[in-house]
Design a binder for these strands. Structure first.
Lengths: 240, 240
DNA sequence: CACCCCAAGATTGTCAACCATTCTAGGATT
DNA sequence: AATCCTAGAATGGTTGACAATCTTGGGGTG
């Protein structure tokens, strides 16, 4: 296949890692970020093997951090590791996204946002507003990468603010697969629509009124479901 | 030391690998099992710190496997690890169990069981039947530990049979917290009821008719929701 | 007496070299 | 051609050491 993947971990002291709140600068986390980005961006095909020693030399670290990174990616559903056979990149099926991942995301975000309504401070709103602004800028230059990053941060901030440990942890393990899915296949709505959704969500949050927020939130997440594929699916007539 | 926890991993070379199904024998997995059992059984209090070096000497392995085990437990929501501060045991709130974990479990199992109806073989049914039988035996001797283990295997087998990678992975990360919750607050239905539920579920599975299975499944999982009194009393102060 | 600062100890994060265990691929044998 | 067998590759685990970081228990200081 292709030659060197040219992944190159940040050798600079300053990793612009703004991670959600976990250990930010550690070598292992840098490796996680690098590999996650690479996988989501499709620089690794599903089925491809990730070899510890190769990665560690390529990324300029020892095997330890790479091992930990692979375990974390496994928990994010981006790779699967088999005993004595290492890690292989995973794909996600339409079906699992629609029937499992999106519904879980709905459950998680509905609960988090409801909680956050009671606990968010002015500073939190400011942080969220910042992400909306960044998203607007990204949209102006059609920078999908940056826009999606702001999208991620938007939700991460709100869910973090809700202060629900498990909910946040689950969200962080669900999100990467959904993101990978949309990057691989057709993408979601237009950037303008995306910005609009979040701008309205922020405004609704500030009212602290669930009746304002929930419909927007549910539509925002549900809308992200992909168009009906040509694949044969179980009858969806049960929709309600 | 005095209050030694006496965790003691299998020191024998031959771990009586009960063959849970997949990853069985590796040192790291043994450590995971040991610690998970200890946490779920309440031998570690929420808030308690788990020190790598202590555990590794106590369990007779090096720090490597212990680190990996702690990361896995983090993904199962049993501990949370903070940079340079190590892992602390987590608790689960009533609210998150009811509003997030149980709904997710419902989503996951509904989908898995529906899939499994189409793919389960006679051998799979036999494996499930075996667990029902083990559960019956456990119930006769009021062996809660064994009964719960059979419960776990029952669902794990069916979900595995559904062949949905992410669904299975998510279920395995959700289950331990729910189990820990019920062990801590000791509110599970009677063993007889538990056996009955599963016996009926198995029979329904064999019909391969969703209309037979789903109601049973939903009631089985929903029934597990504990709220005894209308008023919830969180022993823990707000905040965290 | 309360408070701030700091050094020492404790613990995690990373590295390196090494060996055991197990899969995989390719070649030799029948 | 099918089977067996042997290297080589890669993961799982060990040991020992060191760097980076948090925590804690004093000593000074105001």
């Amino acid at each position: 296949m292709a030659g060197a993947k040219a992944i190159e971990v940040v050798q600079t002291e300053l990793a612009p890692v703004v991670d959600g709140g976990l250990k930010a600068g550690s070598r292992g986390q840098q490796v996680v970020e690098t590999l996650r980005t690479a996988i989501i961006a499709g620089r690794f095909e599903p089925g491809e093997r990730l070899i510890e020693s190769t990665l560690s030399t390529e990324l300029g670290t020892s095997r330890g951090p790479v091992r930990e990174a692979l375990r974390q990616l496994e928990n994010e559903g981006l790779v699967m590791s088999l005993p004595y056979r290492g890690a292989v990149v995973l794909g996600v099926s339409d079906e699992e996204v629609q029937h499992v991942l999106i519904p879980i995301r709905l459950t998680v975000e509905r609960y988090s946002f409801a909680k956050a309504l009671e606990t968010m401070t002015e500073d939190d709103f400011a942080e969220v507003a910042k992400q909306v602004w960044l998203m607007e800028q990204a949209a102006k230059t059609s920078d999908l990468e940056k826009a999606v990053e702001a999208d991620l941060q938007f939700h991460d901030i709100v869910i973090s603010a809700s202060g629900q440990t498990h909910t946040l942890q689950i969200w962080r393990s669900i999100w990467p697969r959904i993101r990978a899915y949309f990057f691989r296949y057709g993408r979601s709505a237009s950037l303008e629509e995306m910005v609009d959704d979040h701008r309205r969500l922020l405004a609704a949050l500030q009212t602290r009124d669930p009746k304002q927020v929930m419909p927007l939130l549910e539509r925002h997440i549900a809308v992200a479901t992909p168009p009906p594929g040509p694949k044969k699916l179980s009858p969806k007539k049960k929709g309600r």
